[in-house]
């Protein structure tokens, strides 16, 4: 029982963090906060991959030249490579998301989702009313 808890502890924390990020994305109306939630989610994914690559008693996957005989146990280099790529791509998507937020703030004067929707609805009704009744 205790062995299972310690063996899976990392994965459970990863899932808690993942759900924290997910919650931020779906429950918070502020667009900047949503991007931050997405970041939490991402970091939890990184942790999951790196946890899977770790080996008990292993060292970083760099060839040790002064090894005094015997095989060295290395951690798996593949998850590290995948996550290196993912970190950089993650920053690129964050930058794009934040730029969208800045642009939305400029167009609507707010970053709150429900206020934006309200403004959109008002614009739509204005447009249809203007087309049907008002003739300036």
């Amino acid at each position: 029982m205790l062995e299972t808890v310690f063996g899976l502890y990392n994965y459970w924390i990863v899932i808690i963090l993942m759900m924290a990020g997910f919650y931020t994305v779906i429950a918070r109306g502020n667009l900047a906060k949503k991007v931050i939630g997405l970041n939490i989610f991402q970091t939890s994914m990184f942790l999951m991959y790196i946890t899977m690559g770790a080996v008990e008693g292993g060292t970083a996957p760099i060839v040790a030249t002064s090894a005094e005989g015997g095989a060295t146990l290395y951690t798996n280099p593949l998850p590290s490579v995948l996550i290196l790529t993912a970190i950089v791509v993650g920053v690129a998507t964050t930058a794009l998301g934040l730029a969208l937020a800045v642009r939305i703030r400029e167009a609507y004067g707010t970053l709150e989702e429900d206020e934006i929707r309200l403004l959109e609805d008002r614009q739509d009704t204005l447009k249809t009313d203007g087309g049907q009744t008002v003739s300036p």
């Binding site: 063996g7 994965y11 899932i15 759900m19 008990e56």
Partner: peptide, 19 residues
């Protein structure tokens, strides 16, 4: 998801499929 992890190889296991 936590139910799903119960089948995962334990942390640091050198015999895990990924290795």
């Amino acid at each position: 998801l936590i139910y799903g992890t119960l089948d995962m190889p334990h942390f640091g296991d050198p015999d895990a499929p990924i290795h």
